[in-house]
């Protein structure tokens, strides 16, 4: 367990042995301010962070620490006030809405707390949705569906028997597994998960986290997950701590106890600082 200083000057993060090709994504001096003048809320204050390829990173922090904002900026769903967000070589802050949309479609995967499956589609239709958004023709037709890959995902996630079911006919855990399959189906460079276990019981939550970890270990994906649950964070290779919109340290090879301790340390050093957001 290594506890970095909360000043968070992280100039480099050692890449993991499995991913020699440089970081999957990074933020450089990333700032996000909501509102103006005295009412301004500084959600992120110059965050520099790098997410290694083929790694499972958890982002933790108290409410209002800016972890969700960071995730949204990494996803190109929100625009930064200043700084850069790099996905591979691409600077997301320089892209217009359509380019960002196509980037999300082709290079990113999402897992939401609310699952957010489309109720009118079956599990299988939900999984393959990202590959079909481009239509058969048209601009940015996106990655063609890799049937073999789909088969692997379905088997790994244990969804074979559920493919024809509608989301309303699936349990929460099953829905989230469908959502994970949907996030992975285009073999995205980066999978972003926002509190993926927040709406699940602990057993289903453990399953989902296990799948996320397997997708990194066995399927070679890169996953960044926002969570407030120390146990969930312990599934990651590395935990990045945020407080009051700034990096507040990190824990590598985390255990639940280590994460909890780091969070406690954070709270004592920052007495309820981040409640503004």
């Amino acid at each position: 367990m290594v506890l970095a200083g909360h000043a968070g000057r992280m100039t480099s993060t050692a890449p993991l042995p499995e991913s020699p090709a440089g970081p999957a994504a990074s933020a450089v001096g990333l700032t996000k301010t909501y509102g103006r003048g005295p009412a301004a809320v500084h959600a992120l204050r110059g965050v520099d962070v790098t997410f290694g390829r083929g790694a499972f990173t958890a982002i933790m922090g108290p409410s209002g620490s800016g972890k969700s904002t960071l995730l949204h900026l990494l996803a190109g769903l929100d625009t930064a006030t200043s700084g850069q967000v790099l996905l591979g070589e691409t600077d997301l802050t320089r892209l217009d809405d359509t380019a960002l949309t196509l980037l999300r479609r082709e290079r990113l995967g999402f897992v939401f707390q609310q699952f957010n499956l489309l109720p009118v589609l079956t599990a299988e239709q939900n999984i393959v949705l990202p590959t079909e958004l481009g239509g058969r023709r048209g601009r940015g037709a996106g990655a063609p569906l890799d049937r073999e890959w789909l088969g692997v995902l379905v088997d790994v996630l244990g969804l074979r028997e559920r493919l024809a079911h509608r989301p309303s006919e699936l349990s929460g855990g099953q829905q989230q597994r469908v959502a994970i399959a949907r996030a992975l189906v285009t073999k995205p460079e980066l999978v972003l998960a926002d509190e993926p276990t927040g709406n699940l019981d602990s057993r289903s939550g453990a399953e989902v986290l296990d799948f996320l970890r397997r997708s990194v270990r066995e399927l070679g994906r890169t996953v960044v997950m926002v969570t407030h649950d120390a146990v969930a964070a312990s599934y990651a290779d590395r935990v990045v701590l945020l407080a009051d919109g700034a990096l507040a340290g990190e824990v590598t090879d985390p255990t639940p106890e280590a994460v909890t301790a780091a969070l406690d340390a954070l709270r004592t050093s920052l007495p309820m600082a981040g409640s503004a957001r």
Binding site: A75, L77, D97, L133
Partner: peptide, 11 residues
């Protein structure tokens, strides 16, 4: 969600 998954405004 659709927008997040890559549906453009035009679409």
């Amino acid at each position: 969600v659709l927008r997040a998954l890559g549906l453009t405004r035009g679409q």
